[in-house]
Design a protein around this nucleic acid. Structure first.
Length: 458
RNA sequence: GGCGACGUGGCCAAGUGGUAAGGCAGGGGUCUGCAAAACCCCUAUCAGCGGUUCGAUUCCGCUCGUCGCCUCCA
């Protein structure tokens, strides 16, 4: 039985989807006004692993990630640069999807865009106005938080406890300071759509309600997001959705991933302390970053540390070369490694405890290497290692072997020649071959029995 | 001011009411012409103070510290 920590209840709960084996999963995607950063990458890696593990467990996951392409910041950027807002958004959306692919994040079933759902959003806002959950002021439409007695249940706050106006000026036109915009009237020079309330665009939270309910139904199993979205975004989503559909709960399991911290502060584009995804990929590789992310519980925040990613890279290298000891078509030996499988599953069942799952991979890697170096067959543990790596989204490719593939016959030839030199005790020359190859990124290792292995390094 | 999370070996990080996984680093070995890699062995009493308990790192309270949210934000 899988147990999932639910932000709504603050407890781990047994996972039982509405209509198994189907699992509906919605994760809040990025606002595409600029490049994504590795904090986004952490979140989508986390939910990628959730999705992969649910599939491993036999569920049929329908996974939707929205892309927010209508937003104040996009408009501001567009006005500043002269690039049309929709082209700008599309450019960053494409970049985001490419980066996710490089991070080995499986594609979602759908990536709905706010701009593609305007009519549906208007229809939903209209319903909320008609049912008195929302009201119109000067072409804006606001959600009436006091019309929802449950408002605040996700973030655990009461309207009376919140300091309205503590950090933001209160808009006097609103009935309650916490009322939030479902629809915003367009100012001159801003993109707009025609609506019953005049020209305007969707507000901040409405798109997620419209797109999740239209794509996955009024009630969904899992809703994921970064922890910074708990309030107000996810809170508002619940209020809108439940008042709209009258189906409670809107979401069975709310999951939130801990934020990536940089220099004692969360990484955020608004703070300005961001590191790009390509930068990390170039320096450490997708597996190293993923291993680093998964070596902490997903709910915890993580302090960014280059040293830690380097260590993860080293571990990944060791584990990858152990995984390479199994032929691609090898079947794991269930008889001998049932214990590791149940340890892996027990870890993952317990709210996706990836640090413990990684410990199992470490064990298997050691076992495979040990068998390999003692002349026994390392395939069974190595094959299982690959299987688990796949569940966690780790490619476990042996370094840059892929890239070296074309040069393989020539490298083999050099290795062969060096072997001859060694047998002739021409060590100086043999070492020169090894050194030169190393400079070219090919590391040689002499294993017992006179054989020599090589592998490509970063 | 309110809500919440966290504080485990040199570093990172799981976990449990009955003396603590894993990774990295470090020390010692095996292997090797040397090297590299790999493998084997070794290294903690869990922020502090009280309380509950036969027994707490694990439960409760307080203190200190760190962080998140209360505004857009993965």
């Amino acid at each position: 039985m899988i147990r999932v920590y639910n932000t709504l209840t603050g407890q781990k709960e047994d996972f039982s989807p509405i209509s198994p084996p189907r699992v509906t999963m919605y994760v809040c995607g990025p606002t595409v006004y600029g490049p994504a950063h590795i904090g986004h990458a952490k979140t989508y890696i986390v939910f990628d692993v959730v999705r992969r593990y649910l599939e491993y467990r036999g569920y049929d996951v329908e996974y939707v990630v929205n892309i927010t392409d209508v937003d104040d910041k996009i408009i501001a950027r567009s006005n500043a640069s002269g690039e049309p807002w929709n082209e700008l958004a599309e450019r960053y959306a494409r970049e985001f999807l490419e980066e996710m692919d490089e991070l080995n994040v499986l594609p979602a079933s759908k990536y709905p865009r706010a701009s593609g759902n305007i009519h549906e959003i208007i229809a939903d806002v209209l319903k909320l106005v008609e049912s008195s959950h929302a009201y119109v002021v000067d072409g804006d439409v606001y959600f009436r938080v006091e019309s929802d007695p449950d408002y605040g249940k996700l973030s655990g706050r009461r309207l009376s406890e919140m300091r309205a106006g503590a950090r933001v000026e209160v808009d006097e036109r609103k009935e309650h300071p916490m009322d939030f915009a479902l629809w915003k009237a367009a100012k001159p020079g801003e993109p707009y759509w025609e609506s019953p309330w005049g020209r305007g665009r969707p507000g901040w939270h409405m798109e997620c309600t419209t797109m999740s309910t239209r794509n996955l139904g009024p009630q969904i199993d899992v809703h994921g997001a970064g922890a910074d979205l708990i309030f107000p975004h996810n809170e508002n989503e619940i209020a809108q959705s439940e008042c709209l559909t009258h189906k409670v709960p809107f979401v069975r399991y709310w999951m939130h991933s801990g934020l990536l911290q940089l220099e004692e502060e969360k990484m955020a584009r608004s703070v300005g302390n961001v590191l790009s995804v390509p930068g990390i990929l170039d320096r450490f590789g997708a597996d190293a970053f993923r291993w680093y992310v998964l070596s902490t519980l997903y709910r915890r925040s993580v302090a960014y540390s280059e040293e830690a990613i380097e260590f993860a890279a080293r571990t990944v290298r060791r584990v990858s070369s152990a995984a390479a000891l199994a032929p691609a078509d090898a079947k794991p030996d269930l008889g001998h490694y049932a214990e590791q499988r149940s340890a892996f599953e027990a870890a993952m069942d317990d709210d996706f405890n990836t640090p413990q799952a990684l410990a199992v991979l470490s064990d298997l890697a050691r076992e495979a290497s040990r068998l390999g170096s003692s002349g026994e067959d390392p395939s069974p543990p190595a094959a299982l290692l690959r299987e688990f790596g796949d569940v966690l989204g780790l490619r476990l490719e042996v370094g840059a072997a892929e890239r070296a593939r074309n040069a393989e016959p020539f490298i083999d030839l050099l290795v062969e020649v060096r072997g001859e030199l060694r047998r002739a005790k021409q060590y100086a020359l043999a070492d020169r071959v090894r050194e030169r190859l190393r400079e070219l990124g090919i590391a040689l290792e002499d294993v017992p029995g006179g054989e020599t292995r090589w592998r490509a390094e970063e």
